[in-house]
């Protein structure tokens, strides 16, 4: 990689109590484009991603060690406010989690309100919903409760909510695993469009999905980063036997 990486991870270790869920992970994530993180259940891929916006440490007994640099700035440095960091690094979760007591509009605007961001709220909400390919479906019902939307729509609403604060990095933690195939296809299409403006890291247990949406793929196994390369390389000609066994479906 010639250009400076957007995110550089050095000797990252993540723990749940005494259990080391992520082991000595080192990798560089380039600016813009999509990096997929794959691996069998319990391999530490979600934990790894949650270390990038310091969500991991919120769980009881959880902590992380090592270095994460975003644009050269320490994520785990002294004096870094995780609340500030999370505005720059947006996240979408496995289950759609719109705030049930707020309208669709207020959900998208929630990050703007929380971070006291200036600007025309209505315009930003519309832009974010358009980016999330949801505007046409909800433009006449912005005042409605998000619980009436389908699961796929709710997940795109959560993506719009994350985009509204204009993050530099977008972390997607198995964003389509709770959705049906049609909703999944829409999310993948959306990721395809967002790759030009955001640095995206997507965790998925679906290898076809990783192959379809990502430029680079990281394969995790038992908390370790086994192989990290271009997606094409990982899926057609992996250098390491474990990766090959996994992507060809021999285990996992």
């Amino acid at each position: 990689m010639t250009a400076a990486p957007k995110i550089r991870i050095e000797k990252l270790n993540a723990y749940f109590g005494a259990h080391r869920a992520v082991r000595d992970v080192e990798l560089d994530i380039p600016a813009l484009g999509v990096v997929a993180v794959i691996g069998p259940s319990g391999c530490g891929k979600s934990t790894f991603v949650r270390c990038l916006n310091r969500m991991h440490e919120l769980l009881p007994g959880a902590r992380a060690e090592g270095r994460v640099l975003i644009d050269g700035q320490e994520v785990y440095g002294p004096g870094v406010d995780p609340v500030q960091l999370r505005r720059r690094v947006g996240m979408v979760f496995q289950r759609p989690n719109p705030f049930p007591a707020m309208s669709i509009f207020d959900n998208v605007a929630a990050g703007l309100v929380l971070n006291r961001l200036p600007g025309d709220r209505a315009a930003i909400v519309e832009k974010s919903l358009r980016q999330a390919a949801l505007w046409d479906e909800v433009k006449d019902r912005l005042k409605e409760n998000p619980t009436r939307l389908s699961g796929g729509q709710q997940q795109r609403l959560c993506i719009a909510r994350a985009l509204a604060v204009e993050p530099e990095v977008l972390l997607l933690d198995e964003p389509a695993s709770a959705l049906d195939p049609i909703a999944t296809a829409k999310i993948e299409e959306l990721i395809h469009e967002l790759r030009e403006r955001y640095t995206i890291v997507i965790v998925t247990h679906n290898m076809q999905q990783a192959a379809r949406v990502s430029d680079r793929t990281a394969f995790f196994y038992m908390g370790e980063l086994i192989e990290y390369d271009t997606t094409e390389h990982i899926f057609t000609n992996p250098s390491i036997k474990q990766t090959e066994d996994y992507v060809t479906g021999r285990f996992g």
Partner: peptide, 13 residues
């Protein structure tokens, strides 16, 4: 649900 709490925290709450 913890997902709601995490959703808010991930937005910078």
């Amino acid at each position: 649900p913890s997902t709601l709490r995490e959703g808010a925290l991930a937005l910078g709450a």
